[in-house]
Amino acid sequence: MKVEEKLALNKFDVDKEVHITVNEEGCRDCELKPCLYACPADCFVLREDHITFSYEGCLECGSCQIACAKGAISWTYPRGGFGVCYQYG
């Protein structure tokens, strides 16, 4: 099962305001790219040599910010009422 298929099962109320921002300057000289392995929703994707990020499928666990040793990820929870809405949990 692909991650997109899994995420499509969840209810998301996606906010227009972005809750995670990635400073791509910091990513350029990052060799390890831990964010790629830390994110359980594959929100970080490596395209050629740079990281692209989308917040829409974020499960709000917070792993990426802890994993990023470059401090390139600024993280907060989405605004109240927005983001993932689990039915089962």
Binding site: A8, K11, F12, D13, Q87
Partner: peptide, 9 residues
């Protein structure tokens, strides 16, 4: 019903 429900639900 919440219109933001994914089709699977």
């Amino acid at each position: 019903l919440d219109p933001d429900l994914p089709p699977a639900k």
